[in-house]
Each structure stands twice: as structure tokens, then as C-alpha cells.
Design a binder for these strands. Structure first.
Length: 221
DNA sequence: AACTCGGGGCA
DNA sequence: TGCCCAGAGTT
């Protein structure tokens, strides 16, 4: 795939953007605080097309009773569906979670595998969820590209691509490894608060100076 | 590439 | 009321 280098930021601009993001969102740690890889896995499955706040509300109670795949397998699909009802897509998610738990028990001794090829084989686990587990639960190199990370990084110019995998690769090339985890959270925060999908608040965005999207925007008008 | 799953919060 | 949300699976 051809990549137009001139539509991405230069090194210095990338450095400036990262410094600004760090300054803007110093508190940008995930509000989803988890104790185990299994909990993170389940929470991330639940987070599909659902706000993290609601996932937290649900899992806070859920994890008081069920903490392992073996625990979850005591639940029927209907029972789990009631627990996670407010997260949306609850039937699909309940079925996928229980099937994932069965695989974890039967194939991995109740543990969460650490390799992406193994993770994406689990029902309900795609590339994004796998990367969240890899990076956040196991501290291994990966950047999870969700809709916010994808949109924001491609707007600013931290990446320039129309697909997730290239964006992921470019982000890992452009961002120092020590900041991968933080940058993931910064971009999500920024996407939620300012660089919104529909009506981005460019006029109050601190990254205007470097942002290629804003540059393009102001060029037209 | 388009379609489906979906309840709940908010303007 | 209508729009949107830390995606993934199927056709």
C-alpha cells in the first residue's frame, strides 16, 4: 500500500503533539481499572459500542461475584444477559463471553492467552480487544486502535491510512514505545472531548497548530 | 462492503 | 425523537 509521507507530520511536529497531549491529559489513565487479564478481557468485550462508564457500572458489581472463566460458566446465557443488559448487544455478548470462557478453560487451563493469534480466535475478541489485553494486561508491545484512536491520529497526522492495521503500525513507528499506552489514552480522551467524529471543536483544540485536518479545514474557507 | 446486534444517556 | 457509544461476526 502506498503511503503519502507528505500527509503525515514530521518528527518534530509529532513530538510537539505528544508533549501537548501529555500536558492536556495528565490524568489520562484508563478509568477501567482491572485486577486480572481475564477481567480486562471481559470488560473490553463488553465495551464494544458502549461507553466505558456503563461497562464500569456493570462490571463493578459483576466482578464481586464472578472473577474467573470457571465462575462465569456457572451462569446461563440468560443470567449473564441480565447482568450485562445495559451494555447493549447483550445476547451476542453473553453468548460470546460464555463460549470464550469455555475455550479458556478447555484449551488454556483457565488462563488468558497472550498471543494475538490465540486471542482473536476467542468469540467476541477482534484485533482491538486483543491489543488492549496484550498491551494493558500483559504489558507487551501493541497499540489498540479503536474508532477514536483511528479518527484522531489520522486527522492530526500521527498516521495516514484508511485501515486499522496500517494506522497501528504507523503509530508504533511514530510514537516512542514508552508512550504507547499513554498515547492510546490521550487520543481517546481527545477524541471524546474535542476531536469528535461529527462536530470537532477545532476552535478550542490545542493541537490546531500542527493538525493537518485543521490545516485542510482552514485552507478551504 | 454492507448489514446486524441494542439498551441507555443526552440534546 | 434522533443520534451516538473503548467492535465483532456474518453474508
Amino acid at each position: 500500500m502506498k503511503k503519502k509521507a507528505n500527509e503525515r507530520l514530521r518528527k518534530k511536529e509529532i513530538k510537539d503533539v505528544l508533549e501537548k497531549l501529555e500536558k492536556i491529559y495528565p490524568e489520562a489513565v484508563s478509568e477501567l481499572v482491572y485486577q486480572t487479564p481475564f477481567q480486562l478481557l471481559i470488560s473490553t468485550i463488553l465495551a464494544a459500542q458502549c461507553t466505558d462508564v456503563r461497562v464500569n457500572q456493570v462490571t463493578k458489581k459483576l466482578y464481586q461475584h464472578y472473577n474467573t472463566p470457571q465462575d462465569f460458566l456457572k451462569l446461563s446465557e440468560e443470567e449473564l444477559g441480565e447482568w450485562i443488559h445495559s451494555c447493549g448487544f447483550y445476547k451476542t455478548k453473553a453468548k460470546n463471553i460464555l463460549n470464550t470462557c469455555r475455550i479458556l478453560v478447555e484449551k488454556y487451563g483457565g488462563e488468558v492467552p497472550q498471543r494475538r493469534e490465540e486471542l482473536v480466535e476467542l468469540p467476541g475478541v477482534g484485533r482491538k480487544t486483543a491489543n488492549v489485553v496484550i498491551s494493558n494486561a500483559f504489558g507487551k508491545p501493541a497499540i489498540a486502535v479503536d474508532t477514536h484512536v483511528f479518527r484522531v491520529s489520522n486527522r492530526i497526522g500521527l498516521a495516514h491510512s484508511d485501515n486499522v492495521e496500517d494506522t497501528e503500525e504507523q503509530l508504533m513507528n511514530n510514537i516512542p514505545k514508552t508512550q504507547w499506552s499513554d498515547a492510546h489514552h490521550w487520543l481517546i480522551y481527545h477524541g471524546r472531548r474535542i476531536c469528535k467524529a461529527r462536530k470537532p471543536l477545532c476552535e478550542q483544540c490545542p493541537l490546531r497548530e500542527e493538525c493537518l485536518y485543521y490545516k485542510e479545514l482552514t485552507k478551504k474557507s
